[in-house]
Simulated assay, not measured.
Amino acid sequence: MAYELSVFLKNKITHFEKITALLKSSSINIRSLTLTSMPHGWGVLNLLVDQPEKAYQILTDKGHSATLQELIAMEMKDEAGGLDELLVKVARAGIHIENAYTRLIQESKMAVLLLETPDVLEARRRLEINHVVLLEDKVVYGK
């Protein structure tokens, strides 16, 4: 199971860098990220890292507000229409998407779609019934 690490942080220049510095000092590799600003000067940093449990522990030990959330990871074609083709299958399976982003694994030239959904176990079951291949962690994290 792949996990996303989300960090709630104040929207100030140094706060983002403090997170990346902590991860760097612990040899944690960031594979993908999104940073979303929220009202009143706050934001959410969503990270796909190669060692999510370790990253979570390090950040929370340093007083950062962080959570781990399971993701669904699927391979998609790295070509025009690849995302659309996969999303048709996701829609047929009746999966509600709360958040999504992608990652390209250069070594294998593989594109990965990462989804947050309210019920990961049910979504995984529905996707498997619809013959959508889910990726293992070692593929997602690039280990």
Results as ranks from 00 to 15, higher is better:
I28G: 02
I28P: 00
I28Y: 01
N29V: 03
N29G: 04
I30V: 09
I30D: 01
I30T: 03
I30W: 01
R31H: 02
R31G: 06
R31P: 02
R31K: 15
R31N: 06
S32W: 00
S32N: 05
S32Q: 02
L33W: 07
T34G: 12
L35S: 09
T36S: 12
S37E: 14
S37D: 14
S37K: 11
S37N: 13
P39D: 09
P39Y: 01
H40E: 13
G41F: 02
W42I: 09
W42R: 14
W42K: 15
W42D: 08
G43L: 01
G43M: 00
V44R: 13
L45A: 05
L45D: 02
N46A: 13
N46M: 04
L47A: 04
L47F: 00
L48K: 01
L48C: 05
D50E: 03
D50P: 00
Q51H: 14
Q51R: 15
Q51A: 13
P52I: 03
P52T: 08
E53Y: 14
E53S: 05
E53F: 09
E53T: 15
E53G: 08
E53C: 11
K54H: 09
K54G: 01
K54M: 08
A55N: 01
A55C: 04
A55R: 00
I58D: 06
I58V: 11
D61C: 08
D61H: 13
K62T: 00
K62D: 09
K62E: 11
G63L: 07
G63T: 01
H64W: 05
A66T: 04
A66H: 00
T67H: 15
L68E: 09
L68W: 01
L68C: 11
Q69Y: 07
Q69W: 03
Q69R: 13
E70H: 11
E70L: 12
L71Y: 08
L71N: 11
L71I: 10
L71R: 02
I72S: 06
I72K: 01
I72D: 02
A73W: 00
A73F: 00
M74T: 10
M74E: 06
M74P: 03
E75Q: 15
E75P: 12
M76I: 08
M76V: 15
K77L: 06
K77A: 15
K77P: 05
D78R: 04
A80C: 10
G81W: 06
G81M: 07
G81D: 10
L83P: 08
D84M: 06
D84W: 12
E85S: 14
E85T: 10
E85Y: 04
L86Y: 05
L86C: 03
L87M: 11
V88C: 12
V88T: 10
V88M: 11
K89T: 03
K89P: 00
V90K: 06
V90M: 14
V90E: 08
V90I: 12
A91T: 13
A91I: 09
R92W: 11
R92V: 14
A93G: 07
A93V: 06
A93K: 04
A93Q: 07
G94D: 09
G94Y: 04
I95Y: 15
E98D: 13
N99T: 15
A100F: 14
A100H: 15
A100Q: 12
Y101L: 08
Y101G: 05
Y101Q: 12
T102D: 02
T102Y: 01
T102P: 12
R103Q: 11
L104H: 08
L104K: 07
Q106G: 04
Q106T: 10
Q106I: 12
Q106C: 06
